[in-house]
Every structure is written in C-alpha cells, then in structure tokens.
Amino acid sequence: MQNAAKPIPAGPAQVPPQGAADQPDHSRRDFLTLATGAMTVVGVAAFVWPFINSMNPASDVLALSTTEVDLAPLKLGQALTVVWRGSPVFIRHRTPDEITAAAAVNLAELRDPETDAARVKKPQWLVMVGVCTHLGCVPLGQAPGDPKGEYGGWFCPCHGSQYDTAGRIRKGPAPQNLVIPPYVFETDTLIKIG
C-alpha cells in the first residue's frame, strides 16, 4: 500500500508523440491482443462446458439404462408392458396368424417400409418401444379389450395412428414404425433391453 504515496507523473502530456519508431511494435501488440483475446474466449468456453455437461445423464441414470425381462410367463397371444429408461416397452407373444399376416404385407404399401423379419429377433416375440412416433403418446392394444385398430396391432388414441401386428405404421399421422429398442436374448426366454 506504500506505493500509493508515489506521485504519478503528469501522464499523457509527457508521452513523446507516437512516431515511426513505434510502428514495428504495433503489429506485435496487435498479435498479442489477438492471442490473449482468443485464449480468453477459449478459457471462458472451457469454464462453461462442465456446467452444460452436468445436465447430461448422470452415471447413476446411465447405470439403470438396461432392463431384464423374463418372457416365460407370457402365454401365446398375450402382451406385456415393461418400463425401460422411463418409457413403456411393448412385448407381444404373437400367434402364428399374426406372424403370417405381418409377413404377408406388400412393402410397397408401407409408409416406412420394413420387413417383419427385420423387426424381430425371434418371430413369436415382438419387442418395441410403446411410444407413438407422432407426438409421443402411448398407443392402445396391449390389454385384451383395447382397440387394436384396423390392422390388428395398436391404435394411438391421441391422433388415430394405426399400427399393424409388426408395429408398422399403416394409417394416421405418425411418420415411422414403432421403434425397436436394442435387446438381446440372454436365454431362450430372458431378454435384456438396452
């Protein structure tokens, strides 16, 4: 704090006028200003990033991102809804009739062409995310008494999208087939979703 006692020279008035001798210094200063400015911007961005990243799923959330389901109790023709990552997953034990109907569809008729075989790992088990691809409602068709739509699959009550027995969009506003989640058969009747 002792420095405060020092008198300050008169300043600008005493500065020699900026002449040609000062010019080489000029570009160096500009580079310095630029480099410092760029580094400051990088620093601020690096400082802000962890805050933004903290909003991504935390490790405990990611750890819960798989669900195991035992299919053994599910009889022919029955359906089961399980929760995976907070969304419903539809599992239907399809009858041979349903499988034949799904396989017989002409791909040219479909809005989102996909063969039935491409949508299942084992034909009798259809596993898909039960969220309408239109605006995220949960379609009806899981319970025995539910409306299943004209194609015997699922019917979305929000805007009338209709899905067939392979979960493909056939009618209504939805643009895509119901999404197939990643899953594997751990045994013949045990699947792990996610």
């Binding site: 962890p50 805050f51 990243n53 903290s54 991504n56 935390a58 490790s59 405990d60």
Partner: peptide, 13 residues
C-alpha cells in the same frame, strides 16, 4: 453426494 459422485463434473461444480 450424488452430485459429487454421479453427475458429470458435479464434483467440480
């Protein structure tokens, strides 16, 4: 503690 352990960069914040 979940912030310290699980949230991305939570310990830093």
């Amino acid at each position: 503690e979940s912030i310290m352990r699980d949230v991305n960069g939570g310990w830093l914040i």
